[in-house]
Design a protein around this nucleic acid. Structure first.
Length: 310
DNA sequence: AATTAGGATTACC
DNA sequence: GGTAATCCTAATT
């Protein structure tokens, strides 16, 4: 299963075998050629009117869908629905809690989206950052987005704009130009801007209204070290304190309360279904001589200590 | 029985 | 080459 979202073999939905054999041909295609909802990895995947891209809202939607027995609603443009085709929905490990599932789906979704933005860049031969776009680039992107979301021809509503102009438009501006689809278009543009901001590794030069949204900062599908993973869990006590928690945060001492649970989460993150605490703890022990994690002065079962506390 | 420690090998980037 | 995954034995709690 593709919990990491970065395994190309798991991208069953990917329709670009090689970009060259598709190129821009779809620009001339008619509806009869039934171009899929996406020329990228998101065929039937509608990134909703998420603005800003928000984990929590996304999580709630996904969770609701999961509880609703994985029956996604019909595509409805302009509404707040996340549509995930069945082949993109990771199998839910039986007995896993909702958090596992969410964590998994979130990782995958964000990874997919970023990857697909990348592919779209290559396909359209445009820069990833909308701010760098010329009028032509904007037009290409608009045409592509029309196809992606099966929108009517709304690209002319935004003609003559370069990327900077486009980005300077508010959501209200988008709505004004197209009351029906402006929101979707704005949300899609927002994804690109977020992705570009993330790429620069720097602080997401986000729009003012989104200054507090750090959900896109920790890109879950990036390679991650075990110690980072554990630290991240510890920094989300609301979600994971039943499995791992600080005994002394200042000293970096923490306790794994549910070793099997933590191991399972680690296995999900690394796409290692056979992960268990025996193997996870072996990796922790490798940190001893590296000076990353050690046993506290008074050794206790399932208690470790970060050498350099946060 | 679960955890701890660490050696050895393999896999993967 | 580095990090982890896997597998292992032996000791400890």
């Amino acid at each position: 299963m593709g919990s990491s979202g970065c395994d190309p073999t798991l991208r069953s939905s990917l329709c670009i075998g090689s970009p060259s054999d598709i190129g821009m041909a779809w620009l001339e295609e008619t509806e009869d050629n039934k171009p899929t909802r996406s020329m990228l990895g998101l065929p039937d995947f509608i990134w909703p009117g998420v603005s800003p891209p928000c984990y929590n809202r996304l999580s709630n939607e996904v969770l609701r869908m999961t509880e609703a027995n994985n029956v996604p609603p019909e595509p409805t443009l302009g509404t707040q629905h996340v549509l995930i085709p069945s082949q993109n929905t990771p199998p839910v490990v039986q007995g896993e809690t909702e958090e596992h599932c969410l964590e998994q789906v979130q990782s995958m979704v964000v990874g997919e989206v970023l990857s697909d933005v990348n592919k779209a860049c290559k396909l359209l031969n445009i820069a990833p950052d909308p701010l760098d776009w010329s009028c032509i680039h904007v037009y290409k992107w608009l045409l592509w987005t029309e196809h992606l979301y099966k929108l009517p021809q709304i690209s002319m509503l935004f003609k003559e704009l370069n990327g900077r102009d486009l980005c300077s438009l508010t959501e209200a501006d988008f709505r004004q130009r197209s009351s029906q689809y402006g929101e979707v278009l704005y949300a899609h543009l927002d994804i690109w801007r977020s992705a570009a901001a993330m790429k620069e590794q720097g602080p997401p030069e986000a729009h003012p209204s989104k200054a507090n949204d750090n959900s896109w900062c920790n890109y879950p599908s990036q390679p991650i070290h075990l110690w980072q993973f554990l630290r991240d869990l510890l920094l989300k006590p609301h979600n994971y304190s039943r499995s791992i928690r600080w005994l002394n945060k200042e000293k970096g001492i923490f306790k794994i309360e549910d070793s099997a649970h933590v191991a399972r989460l680690w296995g999900i993150r690394k796409n290692r279904p056979a992960m268990n605490y025996d193997k996870l703890s072996r990796s922790i022990r490798q940190y001893y001589k590296k000076g990353i994690i050690r046993k506290p002065d008074v050794s206790r079962r399932l208690v470790y200590q970060f050498v350099n506390p946060v």
